[in-house]
Design a protein around this nucleic acid. Structure first.
Length: 435
RNA sequence: CGGGGCGUGGCGCAGCCUGGUCAGCGCGCCUGUUUUGGGUACAGGAGGUCGUGGGUUCAAAUCCCGCCGCCCCGACCA
């Protein structure tokens, strides 16, 4: 994309409403614009990041054997009356009435709809287990939206739902999602730590929240350094019951807790050299809640012995839009965002420091032709300083800097955003380095 | 939901208390010159129902009331 033709409105100054780093940077770098309290429009740069995060989440869900569906945003109140949550959910649920005076709602979550779909279509134990997921917009009418997309009212969420014949099966599904999550977050360049959690209004008895480390996180966390060392993406765990048990044992053998559930006695037993404290942001939450919904909504399957049983369920959420803000909280500096390669909107920016200079123009056009959609070409009539500042602000992993001095010598300068390291080299060598 | 604050060109703000050349400043934007490796400098220019409705007054951005919107602190949450 040519920056001169793009809709990427960057700002030098920060709108007054933005308090935290990620919100300020998302506004300044032109990723989003607020349309009303807790509701945002995603602009090209931000939308690219959102889709990249979504893509990784989707790939890992598929790899874990979950199947993607897409459920509606608008739901019927009837289903929620069946589960008993229509009255329980309170004002956070946005209630709507259609032209026939039917009570509808904008879905804050999808347990009812998925359970309804399941009971309509699945009748036999032979069809279990099933894990279904979708990535869809949710609405929760938060009393106090804040922190930009991190606590919006409308947000994009991946939610998955598992159905198993019994508790043992449900545990396997639960661990499957847990492993998928560790891989998902790692691929986004995040250190995520699962912590035991209260299961809250969804109900249930087994629950973990996934906290990523960021200096500006909302809650204080305590954890074993072991979590930092494990490479989950390449770990030799497969999605079978044995591997998952080993994985889960390893996961739960290390101490991890938010300040709410912090157990000083247990903490004292952790090797002091391995104790880590920090701030964290919740980006995912998984629950096992058994037959709460299958019983309330009478979803049954026939077991091998001919009896009708209520399947065991779990639900598994990832805050996709929240992750955009969370990644920035975890990865930025005074100059701007520092995108991890895997989710960056563009792999590289090409900075033409002297538009109109034949050598610079030719070199930039050649680079742009080769990189194509992976590059944002800054061909604006701006001063070098403005281009540097905007490139740093937008956080592209690489900057290919083309100036008259280097161009005359046949070189460009390659800058790594994360480290600030710059080297001068020929264009092809720069492309090879990036690829 | 309790407490606090704010709405003035695209962004950041001043002006309000003490109504009357107060509609202004910086950034951004447009034009020209200049500069050319970290947001250059100079000159000229465009752009505002002062959130909104009502009231007080000879006169309201300024005072009073209602409404709407947004933000912050706390409790709650992917």
């Amino acid at each position: 994309m040519r920056l001169s033709r793009s809709f990427i409105p960057t700002m030098k100054e920060t709108p007054a409403e933005a308090q935290i780093a990620s919100h300020r940077l998302m506004l300044r770098a032109g990723l989003v614009r607020q349309t009303s309290a807790g509701i945002y429009a995603w602009l090209p740069l931000g939308y690219r990041v959102l889709r990249n995060i979504e893509r990784i989440v989707r790939e890992e869900q598929n790899a874990a054997g979950a199947q993607e569906v897409l459920m509606p945003t608008i739901q019927s109140a009837e289903l929620w009356r069946e589960s008993g949550r229509y009255d329980d959910y309170g004002k956070e649920m946005l209630r709507i009435r259609d032209r026939h005076e039917r009570d509808m709602l904008y879905g804050p979550t999808n347990e009812e709809v998925i359970t309804d779909l399941f009971r309509q279509s699945v009748y036999s134990y032979r069809e279990l287990p099933q894990i279904l997921f979708h990535i869809q917009w949710k609405f929760r009418d938060e009393v106090r939206p804040r922190f930009g997309v991190m606590r919006g009212r409308e947000f994009l969420m991946k939610d998955a739902y598992s159905f198993d014949m019994d508790f043992a099966g449900a545990v396997v599904s639960y661990r499957t999602m847990m492993l998928a999550y560790m891989r998902t977050f790692q691929r986004m360049g995040l250190k995520a730590i699962p912590m035991e959690a209260e299961s809250g209004p969804i109900g249930g008895d087994l629950s973990h929240e996934f906290i990523i480390l960021a200096p500006t996180g909302e809650s204080q966390v305590y954890y074993d350094a072991g979590f930092e060392d494990i490479d989950w993406v390449n770990a030799k765990f497969d999605y079978n019951a044995q591997d998952l048990e080993a994985f889960f044992r390893q996961m739960t053998s290390m101490y991890a807790a938010t300040d709410e559930k912090h157990d000083v006695a247990k903490w004292d037993k952790v090797d002091p050299a391995r104790r880590r404290e920090g701030r964290g942001i919740e980006v995912g939450h998984i629950f096992h809640f058994g037959t709460k919904y299958t019983k309330a909504m009478n979803a049954t399957v026939t077991a091998a012995d001919g009896k009708h049983v209520h399947p065991e369920m779990g639900s598994y959420g990832v805050g996709v839009s929240r992750l955009v803000g969370a990644v920035i909280e975890a990865s930025h500096d005074a100059a701007g965002i520092i995108w991890p390669d895997s989710i960056a909107p563009f792999k590289a920016a090409i900075l033409n420091l002297r538009r109109g200079d034949a050598a610079c123009d030719a070199m930039c056009e050649a680079l742009y032709a080769k990189l194509g959609a992976a590059a944002l070409y800054d061909d604006r009539e701006e001063r070098a300083g403005a281009k540097f500042a905007d490139a740093d602000l937008m956080g592209h992993p690489w900057q290919i800097i083309v100036g008259p001095r280097g161009a005359a010598a046949g070189n460009v300068e390659l800058k790594r955003r994360a480290t600030g390291e710059r080297i001068e080299l020929p264009p092809d060598a720069a492309l090879a380095r990036i690829a």
